[in-house]
Simulated scan of single mutants.
Amino acid sequence: MESLGELLKRTPMGNEALRRSAELMDELLADPLVERFRAKNPELDTNTIRLNLNRFYQYVKEYRNCERCPGLDLCPNDFEGHYTMLSCDNVNGEVRLYDRKVSCKKFIARQNEEQIRSRVRSFYIDETALRNGYSADEILTNDLGRMEAVGHLLEYIDRTKEQGLQTSGLYLEGHFGTGKTFLMCYLLHELAKAGYSGVIVYMPDFVEDLKAMMHEPGKLKETVDMMKETDLLIFDDIGAENLSPWVRDHVMGGILNYRMQRKPTFYTSNLDLEALEQHFSFTSKEGDDRHKGERIMERIRSYVDVVRVTGTNKRKR
Rank of each mutant, 00 (worst) to 15 (best):
D305H: 01
L144C: 04
A192D: 02
L74E: 09
E127G: 01
H82L: 04
E294N: 12
E27H: 10
D225I: 07
N132G: 04
R146E: 05
E286C: 03
Y186R: 07
T268F: 02
E274T: 11
L165K: 00
N90G: 01
N257C: 11
E222K: 14
V60K: 07
L271Y: 13
T310H: 02
N112K: 14
N112V: 05
H82N: 13
T310N: 08
K106C: 08
R159H: 01
Y171V: 01
L97F: 08
E208I: 13
L140C: 10
V224S: 02
A129N: 05
I157D: 01
F206K: 09
T223P: 00
C88H: 11
L183S: 13
Y186T: 13
G239V: 09
Y303I: 00
V199R: 15
F282P: 00
E148D: 12
E16P: 01
D305I: 00
D305V: 00
R110N: 07
E2L: 15
S122L: 14
R315K: 08
Y171P: 00
N132L: 13
P204T: 12
E113T: 06
N47G: 08
T11W: 13
S168L: 01
L187I: 02
T128E: 14
S118L: 01
H175F: 13
A39M: 13
P204E: 12
E35C: 12
V307G: 01
R295W: 04
E27Y: 08
E277N: 11
H215I: 11
E2P: 14
R110G: 00
V95T: 14
T181N: 06
Y186P: 02
K219T: 10
G151N: 10
N112C: 02
K180D: 03
T141S: 15
L29F: 13
V199H: 13
V91A: 10
M252C: 03
M297Q: 06
G177I: 10
T310L: 02
G198K: 06
A194P: 04
H82E: 14
D78P: 00
G164T: 05
G14N: 09
Y267G: 03
H152M: 04
R146Q: 06
T48S: 15
A109L: 08
A240K: 15
A22P: 04
I296L: 07
I200Q: 11
V34E: 10
E190G: 01
K285S: 04
R299E: 00
L154N: 06
L153Q: 03
T11D: 15
N142Q: 09
Q111I: 08
F280I: 05
F182L: 06
T265Q: 01
L233M: 08
S103P: 03
I116F: 00
P42F: 08
D99Q: 14
E138M: 13
F206V: 07
S302F: 01
E138D: 13
T128N: 12
E173H: 10
S302R: 07
M214L: 14
F206H: 10
A194W: 03
Y134E: 10
E162T: 13
N142I: 12
C75Q: 06
K106V: 02
C185Y: 04
K106E: 08
G174M: 06
A194E: 05
S302P: 00
T268E: 01
Y59K: 03
P70W: 07
D288R: 15
K106D: 07
R96E: 11
E162F: 07
R119L: 03
E67N: 11
N47E: 14
L53K: 03
L232K: 03
